[in-house]
Design a protein around this nucleic acid. Structure first.
Lengths: 109, 109
DNA sequence: TACTTTGTTCGCAATTTCACGAACAACGAA
DNA sequence: TTCGTTGTTCGTGAAATTGCGAACAAAGTA
């Protein structure tokens, strides 16, 4: 499948999109894009799923490269994988033709 | 599922992301974002899938609201659904922007 | 009215996703 | 060492996804 008409960029973007393609995972990513880190224990309290299901979703995000976990005492701290996140930003920015108002421009004023 | 901790925006973004979450569909969307329209007959020639499979992927994109088809002679012309595309742009722009801090830090130096 | 072209729908099979509970592993605290 | 907390893994089942070929529908053309 996928000869070579489909570019590497398109494949990577599709991979990221797939990981984002579930409400729970979108919620987690959105949270992490605002909050720098979170703990899955806190997530299970808010979200209407049991911990094993959440664990699977977090694994899905990890496999896609979007987040990473760090052991911290009894818990695990999750945060965005900044490198992959940047790549996803670039891919989607190009794909969606989004012009981002650069904060740099504000500085130049 | 999905009490109300998960916002409408997150659900919509996840829905769009899901539709984008396949190489074939990402290819089609990327093409349409550059080309204004295309015909599925031309797509089957390039892509390594048979027409019935492509039809399903196009249906998936239609169901997500991202594209629309228009009957034109014997063929069907596909193009982006501009309204939904705009919405997706907005959702992903808000969702993906986190690199704001870094340029600011550079400015403050 | 046939015939051709184009794309959808149907039926099928293999695989993946999603969700749950139970069991397990890791590790600090009593 | 034993206990409690935290999160992963396993086993299971239901549903969705992906892909194919065959059959069908629509519509222009001979």
């Amino acid at each position: 499948m996928t000869k070579e008409i489909i570019t590497k960029e398109q494949q990577k973007a599709a991979r990221y999109a797939k990981a984002m393609g579930h409400p729970i995972r979108m919620y987690v990513l959105d949270l992490l894009s605002k909050q720098s880190c979170c703990y899955s224990g806190d997530l299970t309290e808010d979200l209407p799923i049991v911990k094993s299901t959440l664990s699977q979703h977090l694994k899905e995000l990890k496999d896609a490269g979007l987040i990473q976990g760090e052991i911290e005492a009894p818990r695990i701290k999750y945060c965005l994988n900044k490198k992959s996140w940047k790549e996803a930003q670039e891919l989607f920015r190009n794909f969606l033709k989004i012009d981002i108002e650069e904060p740099i421009q504000n500085c130049l004023k």
